[in-house]
Design a protein around this nucleic acid. Sequence first.
DNA 1: TTACGTGCAAAGCGTTTGCAAGAGG
DNA 2: CCTCTTGCAAACGCTTTGCACGTAA
Lengths: 154, 154
Amino acid sequence: MPKKPARTTTASASATHRSTQQRGAIDQVLARADRPLTPQEVLQSAQQYAPGLGIATVYRALRDGMAEHTVHLVDVPGATPRYERASLGHHHHFHCLACDRLFEVAGCPGDFARLTPSGFELTGHDLVLMGRCAACAKARTPVPVDVRCGAHKH
Amino acid sequence: MPKKPARTTTASASATHRSTQQRGAIDQVLARADRPLTPQEVLQSAQQYAPGLGIATVYRALRDGMAEHTVHLVDVPGATPRYERASLGHHHHFHCLACDRLFEVAGCPGDFARLTPSGFELTGHDLVLMGRCAACAKARTPVPVDVRCGAHKH
DNA sequence: TTACGTGCAAAGCGTTTGCAAGAGG
DNA sequence: CCTCTTGCAAACGCTTTGCACGTAA
């Protein structure tokens, strides 16, 4: 009988990967980042540790990381998707519309259950604050008019 | 002296457009929708009122609407951007991960000021609730594994 | 009549995928 | 060794843009 490998398609959330130079470089970059990074940023940083690294490998690593829940997608309205390590735990972001950077925001208002329509099953949420960061507010840096305003001024 | 038209590049928020059949069709579609629509959905619906309508015109109308603040971008993590009329006022959405539809959610937790880092200037926010809608929850419709999970399970 | 709006098709961009070569275990 | 991973380039899907024609004013 042909030896059927034990490795079924068991989608174990654990590292089901080989440890390669590229994967390691990408992990390091995400681990050291103090903010969510775009795939291009990950590529550029990781190339320092893994010369010749291709963008496709970055996308594949990010995709796998998402599947394993070790990486989170941070999708801010009107901006390139960014990624960060999931180990940071539950938190949200502040999007500076002036310099287009993202900042970590500690805490969470929680209690969105009361907003949930009757019969609906709430399993998660996503919150992005926006405005100007401390530096831009102080410098009176103007917000570009073109900004794709997905949020209300509330 | 050449008659300089009064129309300077004054980005007046008011209708600076000609009223065309296409623009009207697109406006109607957005006005009658009970949920945010993708550009493709807008195209298909509006073509009933404006035969031959092209996707480029839809994008141009949506872009202009955003600039005039008559249209809002609804950007849900991991999904195609959708658009809705700004006149709906401030509200948020519930994203059903099972059927991938968006639902309007009345109310807003407000008070995000206390989450805002010191020195930051908060001018807006974006909130998306996710889980299963009433229909999918009742039918036990499973959430696709592939879902690009941008939110925490909290 | 004049300039803006439209449709078509091509160009752009970010992301994904096929495939042969390379490397981990 | 055998299989998974990688890099390259082509493929893709969504969005934008160039251009000539149509049309509102």
